[in-house]
């Protein structure tokens, strides 16, 4: 394994760390739940993905790489599901997103029709 592979791995891990930090800052700076979800998805996709890619490059081609790939794929499938469930729960218990009036009307109509669909 040449040293340039290590260098590229370093670069990936550094990028991932920077994106994790940006996601954390976003989690603190943004203004309501739905905006903070975007900051969280920054950590879930780019932060975790880049760091794991770096680790995979560093470890070479063996079982450890396969395990890293499994964890990466699993998180990429489940994190949007968890985010969507959380958004649904927040919406239906009456948390209002911080948006303009046209968007708010659209959202209210959607919620009413959805309640009719599930028969609440």
């Amino acid at each position: 394994m040449g040293s340039w592979v290590d260098l590229v791995a370093c670069l990936f891990i550094l990028t991932g760390s920077v994106f994790v930090c940006i996601g954390g800052i976003g989690l603190l700076r943004l203004r309501d739940v739905f905006e903070r979800m975007h900051g969280a998805s920054l950590i879930d996709t780019m932060g975790l993905g880049m760091i794991f890619l770096g680790l995979m490059l560093f470890s070479g081609f063996n079982l450890v790489t396969a395990k890293l790939a499994i964890i990466l794929g699993f998180v990429l499938v489940t994190s949007p599901t968890a985010t969507h469930a959380l958004a649904q729960a927040a919406l239906h218990s009456g948390v209002k997103p911080n948006v303009d009036d046209a968007s708010q009307n659209l959202l209210d109509k959607t919620l009413v029709s959805e309640r009719e669909n599930i028969g609440e």
């Binding site: 994790v20 989690l27 969280a40 950590i43 975790l48 998180v75 968890a82 985010t83 959380l86």
Partner: peptide, 10 residues
Amino acid sequence: VNVFGTLAVI
């Protein structure tokens, strides 16, 4: 807490 869990994995 969800984000904390992801960070713990990393």
